[in-house]
Design a protein around this nucleic acid. Structure first.
Lengths: 218, 218
DNA sequence: GTCTATAGTCAGATAGAC
DNA sequence: GTCTATCTGACTATAGAC
């Protein structure tokens, strides 16, 4: 009996996870609208009706795909930011150090296939610019604490900046990171760079921090 | 007879233009997949079959929507860049001056409703991150000359930079501009900024140039 | 919790009259 | 060049057996 229940539970979890994995991958590759439930359930090796059973609607599935990755990611960012602020004592942490606590957790995720890896990062990057109603509704919620905490930290790091300048620059920072995550080959706009390796995540991170810190302090 | 022919021609042009206008607006608001030909033709006050008659397919319409705006925009950019280089003579133009020739034409377009205005800019910004096959195919073509000319100009302006660093920074620049154009309220991620006015296009341009130039020269 | 079968809707595209 | 009418196919979602 217990074995049976465990089996049921494990199947249940595995089914949900398989759907989430397939959806994540397909949404990242083709976009939300262009991905049908049929394609998702086929790739996940589950029945077509399973999505509606487990997630209610296709939009519900999309939301779960994001929540599963973004919540732990942002928690880690806030923990690192707190630690950094404690270590700095009375001094405000540097812009570089603050941005590093924001970017490095994303870097870690992007290298860990078990947490979505580059696939989810691509999806996340694209989502910042998407008109999809569902995404526009729940994403700001997922980022509320991030905005507040990083706004305060960066404000202390560049106190000479007017408030509106600070916010615009934070906006630019987020945009740059989002587009970089969305895939360096997103539009192959810079297709001709023979030296650029999109898989060199550490190198990109370093370049991002350098570039963004300079802009932030300008 | 002549009057009749002129009328036909004018109807033809007006029909195509009305379809393009409606499609541009609806694609920008809802995205490509989420916009049906029925919605477009209804808003344009033309018959459903007109899209297929004039543009072949829905994808063909999308391509025309982009071409109509991007080609003149990029031509103006290249003219300004050339002029700037002539004026500078043997000296390389500054990063700020180069970026200004890139951003200002977009600014001008965004203020001119007759050329698409903010609506098209939003669509264009989003398109950089879109997985749509059609867009990924024709956009790099539209930007080939831009990439070459600006790559050379910026390379001369920051000669200390390694080639791969230059390309990455160009990528960051394009990403930031695209994201900013995609709509400052794209995800309302920075919703809480009480001072930020998304309609203050000159102010945003100035801030963009400052931010990006600092990053470029870091 | 999983499956089959299907309802109900809407999509892009075209044939053929005018 | 424009229109009506319609084809064909795909989609999400659900009811109900197991």
């Amino acid at each position: 009996m217990n074995a049976r229940r465990r089996q049921d539970l494990s199947d249940n979890v595995a089914t949900k996870a398989r759907i989430l994995d397939a959806a994540e991958h397909l949404f990242a590759d083709r976009g939300f609208d262009a991905t049908s439930l049929r394609t998702i359930t086929t790739e996940a090796n589950v029945n077509l009706a399973a999505v509606n059973y487990h997630f209610g609607t296709k939009a519900g599935l999309l939301e779960e795909v994001f929540k599963r990755r973004v919540e732990p990611l942002n928690e880690e960012r806030l923990v690192r930011l707190s630690k950094l602020q404690e270590e700095s004592g009375a001094d405000a942490p540097s812009v570089e150090a603050i941005l590093t606590t924001f970017i490095e957790p994303a870097l870690r995720v992007s290298r860990d296939p078990a947490h979505g890896g580059m696939v989810f990062m691509r999806l996340l990057g694209r989502s910042y610019a998407e008109p999809n109603e569902q995404i526009r509704r729940f994403m700001p919620e997922l980022y509320r604490d991030i905005e507040i905490q990083y706004g305060e930290a960066l404000g202390a790091a560049v106190p000479h900046l007017a408030v509106e300048d600070l916010y615009w620059r934070m906006h630019f920072v987020v945009g740059t990171i989002a587009y970089t995550m969305a895939g360096t080959d997103a539009l192959q706009l810079l297709a001709s760079c023979p030296y650029c390796d999109p898989d060199d995540v550490e190198g990109i991170t370093e370049r991002l921090v350098t570039f963004l810190s300079a802009g932030m302090k300008a």
